[in-house]
Amino acid sequence: MEKHIRVPVDKETAKSLSAGDYVYLTGTVYTARDAAHKRMEEALREGGALPFDIKGQVIYYMGPSPARDGRPIGSAGPTTASRMDKYTPRLLDMGMGAMIGKGKRSAEVIDAVARNGAVYFAAVGGAGALLSKCITSSEVIAYDDLGTEAIRRLRIENFPAIVVIDSKGGDLYRTAAEEYRHSEGGDQ
């Protein structure tokens, strides 16, 4: 089912999404990947605050290539989400509304998505040029020294993604592969 969704995402909307829904996201998201997550974790451990209010916000696991002149951003596709699994349940418990990435998540993340009525979207891995066209502005808001791994605030428009893990515990990676599995090998 195709849906147009505003981000940041409200609880009601997040809960209405189901694994397999094809969505177009419009609004604001924040980028963070390995190094930024490590820093955020350290900040929290030391009793500090996150560089932005995470309530309802969407984190996009992405580190762009440099922008050419006149463009907001370079290639900007998703990175593998499981590297952030260690940090994710805590951020979800703090109110993070959704994540965009690619690849499988841990059982702990799947539980935390359900517990908090959140959602995990996958963008198509390797489609960085196409996805860059859905980003209209990009601004570094924290950890500038991390280069591509800095936290950026992005404006996105009709950004294509697929609901992979929903608030009801659905996991499209598990169910979709089952459907096309041939026990005696493929038929290509």
Binding site: K102, I162, A176, A177, H182, S183, G186, D187, Q188
Partner: peptide, 14 residues
């Protein structure tokens, strides 16, 4: 042939 029978598919979405 066997790999394409695993069902993973483009983007891992089946």
């Amino acid at each position: 042939d066997q790999i394409n029978g695993l069902g993973i598919g483009p983007g891992g979405l089946g």
